[in-house]
Each structure stands twice: as C-alpha cells, then as structure tokens.
C-alpha cells in the first residue's frame, strides 16, 4: 500500500472495541517500554498511522504532563472515536499490565535469589534499550537531512544526555525555539 493511501485515526473511524484489543495487545507485550510495540502495531501491522502522524502525536504527548504512552493512547483514542475511544485505549493499555505487575511483585520475594531470573532481567533490559534505539532511528531517518530539525535534535541530545539539564527546562527553552524555527521555515515557503 503506497504511503499516501494510509489513513490515520483522524480520517478513518476505528471502533472502540478494535482500539481496546489493539492497546490491550500493545500493553501486554510492551516489555521494557511500550513505544516499540505501539510503533510496530499502529504503523507496521495495522497501518492505522504513518510515521509522520505517529511523531506528531508523540510530540504532543511529550509536552503534556504524564506518561507519554498513556497520553498517546488517550489522544489516539480521542481522535479516532472520541471519549469512548480514549477510554477503550486507556483501559486496554493499563488493565492487563497492572494485574501482571502486582502479581509479579507478590511473587518476586520467592524468586529474587534465583540467578537465572536476574540474568534474564538483565538481558531483557539490554534488548529493550535496543528496541527503543531502533524506534528512535526510524523517527530520526525522515528528518536526518533537514538542517532545521537536526539542529534541534542535536541541541536536545546535548542538553539531556551530555549536560544532564532538567527535562522541564529543556522542553520550555528548546520547544519555543524549535516552534520559532518552524514558523520561519513556513513563512519562507509562503513568501
């Protein structure tokens, strides 16, 4: 299917039940971070979103307070099927993982000394970091040749990873700067 024919939740209606099932699957299989699973399901498997739409929703969710993926599910659900969609996506994302994490916590005391369990956790953490890196690379790829976008990307990485500045500070300084650069770019195009 060509890129242009893919339709997002804004222009194609997805039933709340479909959303519940989709987000339930994303939540239940999202080990070490839900974003790679959301990317896989929403873009690659179900084709409900394009990479650009995914980035736009994520961008909005990162400046909103609260967990990004929870916000993502709510915004996605709202845009596709209103409040019912938002509720379905949210319940789908949270219900099963909460049951698992509370069961795991209850069981953990008995198994925390088993070397194999600790080793498995370590390996899964490393692989999860790899999956996040892959999603990051996929989001980065379409803008890698754009000077405006890459300036902001490099500044953000330097501020967080190198200088360890607080995230809120970075968002409230680089955010306006980046929007201003986008404004200038848009004005140049229209002139």
């Amino acid at each position: 299917m060509p890129e242009t024919e893919r339709t997002g939740p804004a222009n194609r209606s997805i039933s709340p039940l479909e959303m519940l099932r989709c987000w339930g699957y994303i939540g239940a299989t999202g080990f070490g971070g839900v974003l790679p699973m959301a990317y896989h399901e929403l873009i690659e498997r179900r084709k409900w979103l394009t990479v650009t739409e995914f980035t736009e929703i994520l961008a909005m969710c990162q400046v909103l307070p609260g967990p990004n993926v929870v916000n993502f599910a709510v915004v996605f659900g709202m845009r596709g099927a209103g409040l019912r969609g938002a509720a379905a996506s949210l319940v789908g994302l949270m219900a099963f993982p909460i049951c698992i994490v509370l069961s795991l916590a209850t069981l953990y005391a008995g198994f925390s000394d088993v070397e194999a369990v600790r080793n498995a956790f370590r390996a899964v953490a490393a692989a999860a970091a790899g999956l996040i890196s892959a999603v990051t690379a996929k989001l980065l790829w379409p803008v890698i040749t754009q000077a405006r976008a890459m300036t902001v990307v490099v500044l953000a990485v330097a501020a967080i990873a190198v200088l360890s500045l607080p995230l809120v500070l970075v968002i409230f300084t680089l955010g306006p700067l980046s929007v201003f650069l986008a404004y200038l770019a848009g004005r140049r195009r229209h002139d």
């Binding site: 736009e56 990162q62 405006r148 902001v152 990485v157 980046s178």
Partner: peptide, 19 residues
C-alpha cells in the same frame, strides 16, 4: 507550525533517552 516545531524536539528527547 506548533506540531512541526515540536516534532524535532521529540526526536531529540528520544535519542537522549535511548542513549
């Protein structure tokens, strides 16, 4: 414009968290 401006910031924050 707001969305176009925030997208690169998002990608930058993702790169930093991945790192």
């Amino acid at each position: 414009t707001l969305q176009m401006g925030l997208a690169p910031l998002t990608i930058g924050l993702m790169v930093a968290s991945a790192w």
